[in-house]
Amino acid sequence: MAIILQLLFTGLGIGAVYALVALGFVLIYRATNVVNFAQGQFAMLGGYCMVITTVDLGLPYWLGILITLVVMAGFGAIFNLGVYYPLRHRSFLPVVISTIGASILITNLVLGLYGPEPTTLPGVIDFPGVSLGAVFLDSQYLVIIAVTLILVLLQYFFFEHTLVGKKMQAVSQDKEVASLLGINVTGMIMLTFAYSAVLGGIAGVLVAPILFVSVGLGAQIALKAFAASIIGGFGDVPGAIAGGLIIGVAETLGAFYISVPYKDAFAFILLFAFLLIRPQGIFGEKVSQKA
């Protein structure tokens, strides 16, 4: 029993990271109808930004986080201008290819600047964790779960209870009408990219102390997050969160009970199962109808 609780805790922790990146996928998809394949690279950049500020430059952790948030927001805005905006009137495919190109570019820039060696980032709390009976709650996993919970609540409040949030929803539902009403469509999409980059960056900051910070970090997380958003029902916000948590738990249980080397395969086994049995995902419409 204790071991299952232990695995659930770990699975929810890593699942929360997938959920944050999946949320970024979903928000951009809803605003632009485009899947941003560089979403995982946002997480990698967040991780490196923390390493540079807190490890290399020796700045305090809180300042590193602050700088990372600002850098990620700015990066999201630039990403929007360079990767999405020039192609915004084109169809799905050119934009998707543009995001794939950007993801390759980002990966190689980091590789060029930082090399292939993985680095480590210490956790935010300098204390290992707490024991709850036979279950050990690692502090970094606790931080991940708490931060994710807070972000999800903040995001819910923002989209449901602020005017800007409503305008962003309007833009994602009908850009033409939104512009007829005088809503700044370009600005709202810019904001969506900035926020999604921040979400990805935070996911990277949170997961860096658990995994190594490396150029492969982005792809590793993005594939799972992408699977999570399909399992949840692509384009669905609660679905992305549920999908992320499900994958986190499934791969943790799978690694323990079935096979450690195949840990990364469980997300995709789950994805295939969903595509066969319930292709519309937990909450969503059919993927085939959306694409």
């Binding site: 409503k166 305008k167 929803q169 309007a170 539902q173 009908d174 009408v177 007829l180 009403l181 005088g182």
Partner: peptide, 24 residues
Amino acid sequence: HVPEGRRVFPGLSVRENIMLGASN
């Protein structure tokens, strides 16, 4: 401009739809 087909925002409430009309 009230466009052809009405184009009410499907996922927003009536009140929110109307409020956003003042965005200009």
